[in-house]
């Protein structure tokens, strides 16, 4: 019988701990497939964050380090500078990357560190239970802005891809989502391009994936997908933000 589909060798057999409808599992799969297809699994060293994907080291079939909250880009710098020919990536959420780890990601991009960051933006803190993130939309409710985020109280949400694209060391930044097959395919291509540019030694590469958090958004997976399209995409436009 012909095999038409099988799990990527880039993933282990461990059962994912993510909530139903969460996009982490899909993005894990895409990263794993890209690493496998590019023949990089034996060489790759990944860094997972603090947040829902803290246990990503259980799921990726490559060597992994778990970093302190927000520090993954610094950890990846330590790895890549001492292993310049190997693929290195960080996998971080928006609380981790855009809030506590803002300095680390900005300076990694500034230095043009030759690793790839996969940035999961679901506009909320997932693991700690739905608090406001720098990426939470105006009016969006979270446990630390229960009446909805206001500009007066918390400012406007941060567009990280646009911010990093101002750095000369950042050679590629693209924002994608995985709400449907067409977008999922685009997301995979973006992840592949990021790793290709990394392996060509071009500089820092960044893929922002708009993602759902049905649990903390208080929505069904399908409704969360629709909410992402209706609310996140208008503020966080999809597409290539920067390509050198």
């Amino acid at each position: 019988m012909a095999i038409v589909y099988q799990k990527s060798k880039g993933l282990t057999d461990a059962e994912l701990h993510y909530c139903p409808g969460c996009h982490h599992g899909i993005v894990h799969k895409l990263v794993a497939e890209v690493l496998e297809e590019m023949g990089l699994l034996d060489e790759a060293i990944g860094v997972c964050p603090v947040g829902c994907s803290v246990f990503a080291f259980r799921y990726f079939n490559c060597d992994m380090q778990q970093a302190a909250h927000g520090r993954a880009p610094a950890v990846a710098t330590g790895i890549k500078r001492t292993h310049p020919n190997q693929p290195v990536f960080t996998y971080q959420g928006d609380g981790d990357l855009a809030s506590i780890g803002a300095a680390e990601i900005v300076h990694a991009a500034m230095r043009g560190e030759k690793f790839t960051t996969i940035f999961i933006n679901n506009a909320i803190y997932g693991m700690t239970g739905g608090q406001m993130a720098p990426t939470t939309l105006i009016g969006q409710k979270a446990t630390t802005c229960q009446l909805g985020r206001t500009v007066e109280q918390a400012g406007m949400p941060m567009r990280v891809s646009e911010l990093l694209s101002t750095m000369d060391g950042c050679v590629y930044a693209e924002r994608v989502c995985v709400t449907d097959i067409a977008n999922l395919n685009k997301a995979k291509k973006a992840i592949r391009k990021a790793f290709e540019k990394q392996m060509a030694g071009e500089g820092f590469t960044f893929v922002e994936v708009l993602s759902t958090c049905p649990t903390n958004w208080g929505m069904s997976p399908l409704k969360a997908n629709q909410w992402l399209k209706d609310n996140m995409v208008p503020y966080y436009p999809l597409g290539v933000i920067k390509e050198v």
Binding site: D63, Q65, A67, V75, A76, T77, I79, T82, V106, H107
Partner: peptide
Amino acid sequence: VFVQAESEVAAINMVYGAAASGM
């Protein structure tokens, strides 16, 4: 390898990454 980090926080985490990869 020498890297001037953006902070002491980043420097010690660069140490973490390098040490964890055997350096």
